[in-house]
């Protein structure tokens, strides 16, 4: 049971806000030590796994595109587009984004948008502009809230809709795990049973976004 101290290192390290890269390495060393591995063995195992997982970091290939578009004014243009609309608010704008993101993720297009390529250059500036349309220039804390909510909305939309698509990795994992337990199931059935959750996610997070609008309006009043 002492190997669980690695998990404790993670929890404490993240809670007291040490640098996470160091915390992660320390946690690996701790659990490895109690599992009877020397620090060098852990380092080698970690290095091997790090090398095998390079695909995770290759998603940053979009940075040059996003950066160049920002240089040419894409965030300003996105904000100006919203500023020209009437009746728009951060919450309502994010609800329409969530709907679009849920529908596209449900047909297998979860990767066409994301935090780096969509939320940073387009969605967050648009949501901030929408706040400004309704309540005037927001305080800096309000801007932070709106940005965090934009990122949260993207995550919520994708997480609870991507399983509606049958070729999603998580659906296939469920199917293959059940198969090893001698329960054979068509992936379509896993997908179908995730639809109620997708609908509830839209209703619940949508309601939170409407409440968020009210909170922004209250914050704006002097």
């Amino acid at each position: 049971m002492l190997i669980l101290l690695g998990v404790a290192v993670i929890v404490v390290g993240f809670a007291i806000r040490l640098n996470p890269l160091l915390v992660v390495l320390l946690a690996a060393m701790t659990s490895g030590w109690f599992a009877g591995l020397s620090p060098l063995q852990v380092l080698a195992a970690f290095g091997h796994a790090f090398n095998e997982n390079r695909f995770v970091t290759s998603a940053y290939l979009v940075l040059p595109l996003v950066g160049m578009l920002e240089r040419a004014g894409v965030r300003e243009r996105a904000a100006a587009m919203i500023a020209g609309m009437r009746g728009v608010s951060a919450g309502r704008f994010l609800i329409s984004y969530m709907a679009l993101r849920q529908v596209t993720a449900a047909v297998g297009l979860a990767t066409i948008a994301g935090q780096t390529q969509t939320v940073r250059p387009l969605i967050a500036p648009m949501a901030e502009a929408a706040t400004e349309v309704r309540d005037g220039p927001p305080a800096v804390e309000t801007r932070y809230l709106v940005r965090a909510m934009s990122a949260a909305t993207d995550n919520v939309a994708v997480f609870f809709s991507e399983d509606v698509f049958i070729a999603m990795g998580s659906v296939l994992l469920v199917v293959s795990f059940l198969t090893t337990a001698k329960i054979v199931i068509d992936p379509l059935r896993i997908s179908v049973w995730s639809i109620p959750t997708a609908l509830c996610a839209f209703v619940i997070h949508g309601a939170r976004l409407l409440l968020f609008d009210r909170r922004l309006a209250r914050n704006a009043k002097p």
Binding site: V24, G32, F46, F50, L63, G67
Partner: peptide
Amino acid sequence: EGRRLADTIGWAALLPQFLAALGVVF
């Protein structure tokens, strides 16, 4: 400009890959 964004993210850019490796060690 890509570098500007990479510096904005900083060490957090490598954290997902670190955590994937931690999962393997765990």
